[in-house]
């Protein structure tokens, strides 16, 4: 097991394995996303309260979920890098940051677009939107530190450290924002916490969430593979591959 883990951690093996798996994952992600979008746009019954705007949920909720879990994955990569100094983990962390930033941004924008017809305003200082905004700040911080330190040998470890500090703060920030929201705005209409969502509504949501996850992994792998070539360009296998 340990041996296998170490082998996968070597850039060369990872490059080979990910290269053979990537096409299947890409096709699967494409199928899931297309099926999910068609289902969500065309076949989900309109909500009795929100009407057709409920269809925005099928991009908003998956992107919000992915925004959070991509930060978690970054943190996991950070721990692996700080503890075992596996270079691949550093590459993975570096490559996850821009994708996560994009998805957090998407979650915020779609939240605002959804808020306009349901709440009547583009932005509400709702607990969920606010903590997503803070998450965006954390992502931006990681990217800013990374770019400010580019070229330094310690860049990877410093970024990993920052991500760890962020991930420890994330629950505290989340709870404090939740608490702050309930304090200032007692009972209000919540977007996603329906008492119970009927299956014809949550099934396509599940498909979309899976599609988003697969998509994330695909573009993550794409970036990781490029960065491996960049860092390992002196090794023989890259030279043979490139020329």
């Amino acid at each position: 097991m340990w041996n296998w883990f170490h082998k996968l951690g070597s850039p060369k093996t990872f490059y080979a394995i990910s290269g053979s798996l990537l096409p299947y994952f890409c096709v699967l992600a494409g199928i899931m996303l297309v099926a999910g979008v068609v289902w969500a746009l065309g076949f989900v019954p309109p909500d009795y309260q929100q009407g057709h705007t409920v269809r925005i949920m099928y991009v908003h909720v998956p992107s919000a979920i992915l925004a959070q879990s991509s930060y978690m994955m970054m943190a996991a990569a950070g721990v692996v890098y700080l503890v075992w100094r596996i270079k691949l983990a550093d590459i993975a962390l570096q490559c996850a940051a821009p994708i996560g930033t994009g998805l957090t941004f998407l979650a915020l924008i779609t939240g605002a677009i959804w808020g306009k017809p349901t709440w009547g305003t583009w932005w509400v200082w709702d607990a969920r939107l606010t903590s997503t905004l803070v998450l965006l700040f954390l992502f931006v911080g990681v990217m800013a530190l990374r770019s400010a330190m580019s070229g330094k040998a310690s860049a990877g470890r410093a970024t990993a450290m920052l991500v760890l500090v962020g991930v420890m703060n994330l629950p505290i920030i989340k709870y404090s924002v939740d608490w702050w929201f309930t304090l200032h705005q007692p009972s209000s209409f919540s977007l996603t916490e329906k008492p119970s969502m009927p299956p014809e509504m949550w099934m396509p949501l599940l498909v979309m969430v899976l599609g988003f996850y697969l998509f994330f992994f695909c573009v993550w792998m794409l970036r990781i593979r490029t960065e491996i070539l960049n860092r390992e360009y002196r090794s023989r296998w890259v030279r043979e591959l490139v020329q």
């Binding site: 979008v37 746009l41 309109p46 009407g51 057709h52 705007t53 269809r55 925005i56 991009v59 908003h60 992107s63 998407l106 924008i109 779609t110 677009i113 959804w114 306009k116 017809p117």
Partner: peptide, 15 residues
């Protein structure tokens, strides 16, 4: 989209 076309389609467009 029942009057909300601009919202739904812009959300999907940005996505």
């Amino acid at each position: 989209m029942g009057g909300h076309g601009a919202f739904v389609w812009s959300a999907y467009g940005i996505a």
